[in-house]
Write a protein that binds this DNA or RNA. Structure first.
Lengths: 166, 166
DNA sequence: GCTTGCGCTGGAGTCCACTCCAGCTCCTAG
DNA sequence: CTAGGAGCTGGAGTGGACTCCAGCGCAAGC
C-alpha cells in the first residue's frame, strides 16, 4: 500500500499543526532559535508543508516544551541532543532516556535548594539595609562585630574606623 | 596623626584575612574569576599585603558570598557592578541598592516557580517512560489521544500509524 | 506582472562570562 | 645562590548558545 498522499496528511493536520511563527509565540523561543535547535538535532520531528515550510504538529509542540524545560533547567544543548537522538521510540533506549531525565531531576532539585539559600542571603542583605536606613546609619557594616571589638580593644588602632566608641 | 603602619594593620588582620587561594577554595570561585571580578568592579574592597598580594578580610569574604548569590541567581555581571559601585556606605544610595536587591528577589521567586513547573514536566515524562517500559511498548506517544482518535476515525488513514486498533 | 510578506538556507557574527597565558616579582627551602 | 612555587598584570582566547544576515523561493493581493 502506498503511503497516503501529502495532501491527505495535510488535510488532517492543517487545523492542528502550527507554523513556525505560531510556535515561536506559543513557546517564547525565537524563530531563529527554533531553526537552530532543529539544525542541532534538538527537534528531530519537524514536518514540512508542500512548499517546504515547517509545520509543527501538536506532538512536536509538546516535545519542544520538554526540550525547553530541559534547557531552562540548565541541561546543556549537547545533553539534550543526546537525549533526543536516543529517541525513535525504541524500547531499548527507554531506560537510558529515563536515566538522563532522572539525573536532570536531581540537578533541578539541587538547583532549587541553592536558589533558596541564595534567596536567603539576598533577603538578609535587604533586611540589613532596612535596618541601616531606619537607624539613619551611613556605613556598611562589612566589618563583623568581633573584628570591630578587636579593633576598639587595640589602642594602636583607635581612629582607624570612624564612628567607634572611644 | 599618621595612619597606623601597614605592619600594624597586617598584625591585626593576618589571622583573619585570607589569601586568594583560600578564598577560592572557600567560595568555589576560581582564582582567575576572583581576579576578573575585581577588575570588573564586582569586588571593590580587596586589600593588598605589603608585597602586593591580595588579602581578603572576612568582610570581603562575606561580600563575595553576596556577589556569588547574585550571580548564581542570574543577575548579569553588569547589574552586580551597578549594585557594587553604588556602594561605599553612603546613606543616600541605600534605597537604590535595596531596590536592586528586591528586584532580584522577585526574579528569584519567579525562577523558582518556573523551575518547579519544569520539574513537573520532566517528572511527567519520566512517569510516561516508566509506563511504556512496564507495558513493554516501543513507541513514543508523541501523538495525542485526540489526534489518534481522529486518525483512526478516518478510513483513508488506516495504517498510517502502526499499532492502532482497526 | 509586480510588490510585499513570510519562510528557507548556510554561514558569519555577537554576547557573556569566564579561562588561559607569557613574562614578571617576591619569598622560601635547600 | 638558585630553584621552585605562589601571585601579579595586561591581554588574548574559549565555549556555549544563540542571533543576524544575504540571497533566494513561493503565494497572495493590487
Amino acid at each position: 500500500m502506498p503511503p497516503p498522499s501529502l495532501a491527505v496528511m495535510t488535510a488532517v493536520t492543517r487545523e492542528t499543526s502550527l507554523g513556525i511563527r505560531q510556535v515561536s509565540e506559543e513557546t517564547g523561543l525565537s524563530i531563529d532559535t527554533l531553526r537552530w535547535y532543529e539544525r542541532e538535532g534538538l527537534l528531530p520531528l519537524v514536518e514540512r508543508s508542500a512548499d517546504g515550510r515547517r509545520r509543527y504538529p501538536p506532538g512536536a509542540l509538546r516535545f519542544i516544551r520538554l526540550v525547553q524545560a530541559l534547557r531552562r533547567t540548565g541541561m546543556p544543548v549537547a545533553d539534550v541532543r543526546r537525549f533526543v537522538t536516543l529517541g525513535g521510540g525504541e524500547l531499548a533506549n527507554h531506560p537510558e532516556r529515563m536515566a538522563l531525565l532522572e539525573q536532570q531531576c536531581a540537578q533541578i532539585e539541587q538547583r532549587m535548594v541553592e536558589l533558596r539559600d541564595d534567596l536567603t542571603v539576598v533577603q538578609a542583605k535587604i533586611a540589613q539595609y532596612r535596618e541601616l536606613i531606619a537607624r539613619g546609619v551611613d556605613c556598611e557594616d562589612e566589618l563583623p562585630d568581633d573584628l570591630l571589638a578587636q579593633i576598639s580593644a587595640d589602642p594602636r588602632l583607635r581612629g582607624v574606623v570612624p564612628g567607634l566608641p572611644a
